[in-house]
Design a protein around this nucleic acid. Structure first.
Lengths: 196, 196
DNA sequence: CTTTAATACGGAACATTGTTCCGTTTCGCA
DNA sequence: TGCGAAACGGAACAATGTTCCGTATTAAAG
């Protein structure tokens, strides 16, 4: 039995096309102008009318949630790709960088997350359910290769990075934020005896 | 040297009058419709034009902050009044009820508080600086009268009530919320030996 | 009390954005 | 190819934030 997806893909080709165009456009606009960006901006970038946007996403939160899940999925998928392309230690490092970018880009969501709107209340759970396994896989491989300590809990690592990556609340991850995360990552390297 | 107040009272009589009318109107409208209520509603209830509102409070946050401080001050002032009118135990109880009302009415602010807007970042500090002394005075008097335990920290009590009073995030304080707070308050009663 | 200049007021006008509605277009299918 | 259903687009409307300037009010000077 193929599990029925939560979101039902439209049947008609144009509807499917526009749905994906809207998701991509919203992703870009949200990244640029935040999740409160005007509806028209998103519709225009997607090349559709506002009526089409409203048909696919009657509530703004529907669009926000859809974009969020899409990005979580992309971040989780990156884990498998990186695991194929790089040796375990480097794959883990690169994926953590990817995760940091994801967290930093989601800064504008914090207000929505804390707004009490029930539309968002499952998002943290969704994130952990999808990214913890990805992190676990990379951690396990890196640990098996002797690159990192074997006793790191995936959830702890993700939460730690998420917290460290949100120091100012206003956007840039280029500064101390990344340095602090580097410290954290250094902390999980496996060095039983040798000096660097 | 009379310390210069943070907010400068207007010189002209009409300006002062309108300023206070706006604060009172905003207090009512915020309580009814939340802090996102239309500017026109507030101006109309105050009996002034929107231009006047904007002159006194160029940013919405200015008005929100002013109302918040005014209500904190009123809650703090109530402590002195109650201490005069009732014996220590009852004064404390009545003031805690007053504080619960204040916290419940401020529910709509939580989103603003967490929005990252620097305009609000000093409000929690303002609240504690003004209400902790009020609570401390009442607690001390009640403890001296043998009505409550002598080892309760004012800040702990306020924080505890504030947390318990915000269970659902959507308004009503009439239900379990008040019962939980009653439990907390019972917990600080001083009962060395006798049964009630 | 009258004059006067500064200050404040009011609300129409404009700008921005959310939301709906329906004539037109596109699609899948026979 | 023809047809009915589904989807589309964007004008139109509604709600709200913000500005601007002619008018009214005030406090002080004469």
């Amino acid at each position: 039995m193929p599990a029925s997806k939560g979101k039902k893909e439209p049947v008609r080709a144009d509807a499917r096309r526009n749905l994906h165009a809207l998701l991509n456009a919203a992703m870009q606009v949200f990244a640029t102008s935040g999740v409160d960006a005007p509806v028209r901006d998103i519709a225009e970038r997607a090349g559709v009318g506002v009526g089409t946007l409203y048909r696919h996403f009657p509530q703004r939160s529907d669009l926000i949630v859809a974009v969020f899940r899409k990005e979580v999925d992309a971040c989780a998928a990156a884990a498998a790709t990186l695991a194929d392309q790089y040796e375990p230690g480097e794959a883990l490092e690169r994926w953590l960088d990817r995760f940091i970018e994801f967290v930093a880009a989601k800064r504008g969501l914090s207000a929505a997350l804390h707004s009490g709107d029930p539309a968002y209340e499952h998002l943290p759970q969704y994130l952990m359910e999808h990214l913890a396994p990805a992190a676990a896989g990379l951690l396990q491989a890196a640990a098996a290769a002797g690159k990192v300590r074997p006793d790191v809990q995936p959830v702890d690592l993700l939460m730690g990075i998420a917290h460290l990556s949100s120091p100012d609340g206003k956007g840039s991850i280029t500064g101390e934020s990344r340095r602090m995360v580097s410290l954290l990552i250094d902390g999980l390297r496996y060095r039983p005896n040798a000096a660097p």
